[in-house]
């Protein structure tokens, strides 16, 4: 049986459309608001939902995502409540894939086996854990694959041809190409620079490749999506939430980005 991620990318391919992947921090600014936003994402045109798992020390993230995590933690967000968000979505939507993105320690603390069983049961489809490179696959990647969860890997400009096969091994779902060396929310990449990198990944893997970091406008979403299988927007959406926009306003912004990506 195809996973939700496989089914979604297969459907997009059949329609000739690019994927729009959105990222928000679970529990930001509080659980109730975050729940409303998550439930609204599929209708706003989001093809894959990335849900950030708050962590006190998000070393690969910029100030925007870090502040979002702190807001969520201050509002009482926990790993359990993040799974609650997924459960809430699954009660009304059984098709939109959900990927949990974050750092290893909250999972390590809960216990890998227990976490995987709970995440799977809640309706999580994949994990993207920033501080688990392929060298540490035995920690979570292999157990996650065995539990039926996809393990999505980041490929970066520093991942050279010699290393790329290692990064792609044991990865599943899709590949997330980080278009710049840097933290989330930093400078944007140009589509012209990204295209050859995506081609490099596509030559080494059959997995869909989406590109993220630095995309803030519908036009940029379109340009980047055009040279890949889709694009990811995170910090820009999180900034809207941080600015105190209403749920409707946040979802309208997401919809504009999604339309940008889908016009590619």
């Amino acid at each position: 049986m195809a996973t939700r991620i496989e089914a979604r990318f297969a459907a997009l391919k059949a329609e000739g459309r690019k994927a729009f992947v959105s990222y928000i921090m679970a529990g930001d600014p509080d659980f109730a608001t975050s729940r409303e936003i998550v439930l609204g994402l599929p209708a706003a045109g989001v093809d894959v939902i990335e849900l950030g798992v708050p962590f006190t020390d998000p070393m690969a993230d910029g100030p925007t995502i870090q502040a979002a995590g702190q807001r969520a933690l201050a509002a009482g967000q926990t790993l359990e409540r993040t799974l609650d968000l997924v459960r809430a979505l699954r009660a009304v939507d059984d098709a939109t894939p959900v990927v949990l993105m974050g750092y290893y320690n909250p999972i390590h603390s809960r216990g890998v086996d227990r976490f995987l069983a709970e995440a799977k049961a809640a309706g999580v489809d994949g994990l993207l854990i920033v501080d688990l490179p392929p060298e540490e696959d035995s920690e979570l990647c292999l157990p996650a694959l065995a539990a039926g969860l996809d393990f999505i890997r980041l490929a970066t400009p520093t991942t050279d041809d010699a290393r790329l096969p290692k990064v792609l091994s044991n990865s599943s779902g899709f590949v997330y190409y980080v278009s710049i060396t840097g933290i989330t929310g930093a400078a944007a990449a140009q589509a012209g620079d990204v295209a050859p990198e995506v081609a490099r990944i596509k030559a080494a893997s059959d997995l869909p490749a989406v590109v993220g970091f630095g995309i803030r406008t519908p036009e940029a979403a379109r340009d980047i999506a055009a040279v890949a299988d889709g694009c990811v927007v995170g910090s820009a959406i999180v900034s809207e939430i941080a600015a105190g926009r209403s749920v409707a306003e946040v979802l309208a912004y997401v919809k504009a980005l999604a339309e940008g990506a889908h016009s590619a």
Partner: peptide, 20 residues
């Protein structure tokens, strides 16, 4: 060779840093 002292240590960094 994996940087472990028993179960401690390791290389828990993002992919961007791993080649470095």
């Amino acid at each position: 060779e994996s940087g472990r002292f028993g179960s401690f240590g390791g290389r828990f960094v993002s992919e961007t840093l791993m080649p470095l």
